[in-house]
Computed example of a mutant assay.
Amino acid sequence: MKDALVIIPTFNEIENIEAIIKAILAQEKDFDILVVDDNSPDGTSAKVKELQSEFQDQLHLLLRANKTGLGTAYIDGFKWALQHPYDYIFEMDADFSHNPKDLIHLYNACAIKGADISIGSRYVDGVVNVVNWPVSRVLLSYGASRYVRFITRMKIADTTAGFVCYKRKVLETINLDEIKFVGYAFQIEMKFKAYLKKFNIIEVPVVFTDRTKGKSKMSGSIISEAIFGVIKMKFNSLFSN
Rank of each mutant, 00 (worst) to 15 (best):
L139F: 10
Y86E: 06
L103C: 06
G229R: 08
R146V: 04
I75E: 01
I223V: 05
Q58V: 12
K79Q: 15
K217L: 13
A115C: 08
K169A: 11
K232T: 12
T159V: 10
H84G: 03
K49Q: 13
I223D: 04
E189R: 09
F239G: 09
C165G: 05
G162A: 02
I14K: 10
A81N: 07
I104N: 14
G69I: 10
V36P: 01
F163E: 02
F186T: 03
K169R: 14
G77V: 08
V138G: 06
T159M: 09
N241P: 11
K197V: 10
L34G: 01
Y184A: 08
V130N: 02
H105L: 15
S219V: 13
S240H: 15
S121L: 10
D93T: 09
A19C: 00
S141A: 05
D76G: 04
S240T: 15
K101F: 13
I112P: 08
L61F: 01
K180Y: 11
N129Q: 03
A157R: 13
T160A: 10
D210G: 09
A94E: 09
N129H: 04
F186G: 04
K113S: 13
R137L: 12
I202D: 15
Q56E: 11
E15L: 14
L34D: 00
K191W: 13
E18Q: 07
T212F: 10
Q187W: 11
L51V: 01
G120A: 00
K67M: 13
R64A: 06
K198H: 14
L106C: 09
I14M: 03
V131R: 06
V170R: 05
V131E: 06
I231P: 06
V131G: 11
E50A: 14
G69T: 08
P9C: 03
V124L: 07
D125I: 03
E91I: 10
V35T: 00
F186L: 11
V230E: 08
F11I: 01
M190K: 02
E28T: 15
K29W: 01
G162M: 00
I156Y: 07
L63Y: 03
I7V: 07
A4D: 05
A109W: 05
F208S: 09
N236P: 07
D116Q: 01
T173S: 04
F235R: 14
A4K: 15
M218A: 14
M233D: 07
I21Q: 03
L25T: 01
R122M: 13
A226N: 14
T10N: 05
A23T: 14
A23W: 00
T209K: 08
D95T: 05
